[in-house]
Amino acid sequence: MRTSGVLGATRGLGLHDHICWPYEDPEEFRARVLEFLADGLVLGQQCWYVSEGPTEVLTSHVAELGPALESGALRVVSVDETYGGATVTPAGQVATYAAATEAALAAGYAGLRVAAEATPMVRGDEALEAFCRYEHLVDRYMAGRPFAAMCAYNRAELPEAAIGELACMHPASGADAAPFRLYAASGDRVALDGELDLASRERFPRALDRVGLSAGTGPVVVEAAELEFIDHHAMFALARAAGGEVVLRTRHRAPARLAELVRVPGLRVEAE
Results as ranks from 00 to 15, higher is better:
Val6Asp: 04
Leu7Phe: 05
Leu7Gln: 10
Gly8Val: 10
Ala9Thr: 12
Thr10Trp: 02
Gly12Asp: 07
Trp21Asn: 02
Trp21Ile: 05
Trp21Pro: 01
Pro22Leu: 08
Tyr23Cys: 02
Glu28Met: 07
Glu28Pro: 04
Val33Asn: 01
Leu37His: 01
Ala38Phe: 01
Val42Ser: 07
Leu43Ser: 08
Gly44Phe: 00
Gln45Val: 03
Cys47Glu: 09
Cys47Gly: 11
Tyr49Asn: 03
Val50Lys: 01
Glu52Tyr: 11
Thr55Tyr: 09
Glu56Trp: 11
Thr59Trp: 07
His61Cys: 13
Pro67Ser: 07
Ala73Val: 00
Leu74His: 11
Arg75Glu: 12
Val77Phe: 04
Asp80Val: 11
Glu81Asn: 10
Ala86Asn: 08
Thr89Glu: 15
Gly92Phe: 06
Ala100Trp: 15
Thr101Asn: 10
Glu102His: 13
Ala103Val: 06
Ala104Phe: 08
Gly108Asn: 10
Ala110Gly: 07
Arg113Met: 11
Val114Gln: 03
Ala116Trp: 02
Ala118Leu: 12
Met121Pro: 01
Val122Leu: 04
Arg123Lys: 13
Arg123Asp: 11
Gly124Phe: 05
Glu126Pro: 04
Glu126Phe: 02
Glu129Pro: 00
Ala130Tyr: 06
Tyr134Phe: 15
Glu135Ile: 01
Leu137Asn: 05
Tyr141Thr: 02
Tyr141Pro: 01
Arg145Phe: 13
Arg145Asp: 11
Arg145Pro: 04
Pro146Lys: 09
Ala152Thr: 01
Arg155Leu: 14
Arg155Cys: 08
Arg155Ile: 13
Leu158Cys: 06
Leu158Gly: 03
Pro159Ile: 09
Glu165Phe: 00
Leu166Thr: 00
Ala167Leu: 00
His170Thr: 01
Ser173Leu: 06
Ser173Glu: 05
Ala177Gly: 05
Leu182Cys: 03
Tyr183Gly: 00
Ala185Trp: 04
Ser186Asn: 09
Gly187Glu: 07
Gly194Met: 14
Leu196Thr: 06
Asp197Val: 09
Glu202Lys: 12
Arg203Thr: 15
Arg203Tyr: 03
Ala207Gly: 14
Asp209Lys: 13
Val211Ser: 02
Gly212Met: 05
Leu213Met: 08
Leu213Gly: 00
Gly218His: 12
Val221Pro: 00
Glu223Met: 12
Phe229Ala: 07
Phe229Val: 01
Ile230Thr: 07
His233Pro: 00
Ala237Trp: 01
Ala239Cys: 09
Ala239Pro: 05
Ala239Val: 08
Ala241His: 04
Ala242Pro: 03
Gly243Lys: 06
Gly243Pro: 03
Gly243Arg: 06
Gly243Ser: 08
Glu245Thr: 15
Val247Lys: 03
Leu258Glu: 04
Ala259Met: 02
Ala259Gly: 03
Glu260Asn: 15
Val262Leu: 04
Leu267Cys: 12
Ala271Asn: 12
